[in-house]
Amino acid sequence: MIEVVSVNKTFGKQQVLFAVSATFLPGKVNLIIGQSGQGKSVLAKCMVGLHEVDSGSILFNGRDFTAMEKSEKSEIRQEIGMLFQGSALFDSMTVEENVKFPLSMFTKMTKKEMQMRVDFCLERVNLSGRNGLYPSECSGGMQKRVGIARAISMNPKYLFCDEPNSGLDPKTAIVIDSLIKDITYEYGITTMVITHDMNSVMEIGDSVLFIHQGKKWWEGDRHSIISTENPEINAFVFASEFMKEIKESLKGQKR
C-alpha cells in the first residue's frame, strides 16, 4: 500500500501539486487520470523520489519515504518497478541485458538463475527469443514490453507506469493493459498507472484518481466515472461528440 499525504510541490514560482492525498491499494490497478499538464507525472515522480516534495509525505507500507536517507531510499527503490513514458531503456544494452541489469546489480543470483529469470520475464511479455535485439531495433510497443519486463524482473512490490500505452495502436494498447492487470493480480503488486486513455480506464481501472489543476478532483472506480455529474470529469471522459452521444443514450436507457 502506498499512501500520499497532503503533498505540495512547486517548481520555482509555479505550484504544481496542491495538498494531494491518496491511497493506492495492493493487488489493484490504481489509475491516475487527467488532462495534459495537470501534474500527473510530477505526482508519480514525487512518489518515487525523483522530485523532492515541498511538504507532505509518501508512505510505502507505512514507511515514510520522504524522510529517508539516500541509502534507505535505495532499499525501497529496489522494491519499485517503473515503466517510463519513453520506456527509458538503456540503449547501449540488449533487451536481455536491460532486463538482467537490476538482477546483476542487486541480487546474488548465479548466471544460470539470472538467465532463467530473464527468460521468464521476457516470456511473460511475449518477447521470448528477442534477447539479442538492441532497443533501437525494437518497435515502440516492444520497447514498452521490454520496459515492463525490466520493471518486474526484481519482483517489485510497487509498479509505476507512466502512460504505458501512449503512442500505441488500440490493440497493442489493450495487450499492454491486460499485461499490467494480470501481473498486478498475480503477484499482488500495488500498481499505479497514469493514463489518458479511456479504454484503459474501462479495462483496468480498479480505482481512479482524477487530477485537475494539481488537485485531487475526484476519486472513484471505473463504474462510477460514467455516472458522475462532476463537470470536469465529464469534460474529460466525454470529450468527443461521439462519447457525448453514448452518454445521452445511456441516460435514455436508464429511464
Binding site: V48, L50, A88, F90, P102
Partner: peptide, 14 residues
C-alpha cells in the same frame, strides 16, 4: 533527457 538516468535512480543505483 531520455530518462535513462532516472531509470537507474529508480532502481536504487547511484
Amino acid at each position: 533527457i531520455t530518462e535513462q538516468i532516472d531509470a537507474l535512480e529508480i532502481m536504487g543505483v547511484n
